[in-house]
Amino acid sequence: MSVPNAIEVVDLVVGVDELSAVRGVSFAVPARGRMGLVGESGSGKSMTAMALMGLLPPGWQARGRVLHDGVDLLTLSDKALSSRRGRTISMVFQDPMSSLNPVRRVGDQIADVIHRHMGVTRRAAHAQAIDLMTQMNLPRPEQLARAFPHQISGGQKQRIMIAMALACYPQLIIADEPTTALDVTVQKQVLRLLNAATRERNSALLMITHDLPVIAAMCDTVAVMYAGRIVEHGPVQKVFRTPRHHYTRGLLDSQPTMDNIALDGSSRLHSIPGMVPPLHALPSGCAFHPRCPAATDRCRTSMPEIDATGAACWHPVPVAAPAEAAS
């Protein structure tokens, strides 16, 4: 029997005291599916991920439902949750340095995960760890397994993190900006690896990043987040080719890519004016209205919901409009 969804999130609200960083987010990642969550810094992407993993900072609370493997993760005890973390659901973080234990050898750290969740002996776990490192294209795995985190490069550390996340064939991997700290060439290698490895293991992938090209390369569906809400959601091909929300459109236009600029230095990049609002000063109505070129009074007073267009917008971008820089 196959499970329909690797994870289903219904009306997730994450906040501390009276502030909410995530304000009613719903989405589902089908088994073996790959979804992207994209948005500017501070839009609530990491808080969403942390809520799914049960790793919120002290004082923060999550409401709503998070259905995974037949249970609602938000109702589970800490103990039940931690027995799942790394086994049926696992995560790769942005900063590999701070998520690896600096005083343990990396090989032992991978083996720990296998030993704890798969019930195999230490020796067998260690052998599996070396095996995994080989699959991650890490050079001289036996030797590297004995290295401490500070002795290896950022790209290698991120591969170790991916190996740990994949060790127990989880149903879902959440990758929060896994390549943001890496340079472009290493980024590509790591993405390629993450792509192949999740497919091989039939794991679903939730990819969190502010980098649109990464989503375009890795995911089937995408949810665009702004100020704690999903403002546009749909297949990557549709959303990126014919964006309907003005924020999505703005993000696409700000990309300095070959498609977007003349290489003789004459063109100007489109940029979204202003900045992401802080949690305690969210604008009324559509939170994007102070930065939106098409905002009207209606946008300032009432909040749009996602409708048939796939976007939460009162005046969606016309479909015919070519997505190119408007100066």
Partner: peptide
């Protein structure tokens, strides 16, 4: 060549040959 091929763009991603 390495640097050029490492550049990801939305279009190359959508056409499925980015990685």
């Amino acid at each position: 060549q390495n640097l050029v091929s490492a550049v990801l763009t939305v279009n190359s991603g959508l056409s499925g040959n980015a990685l």
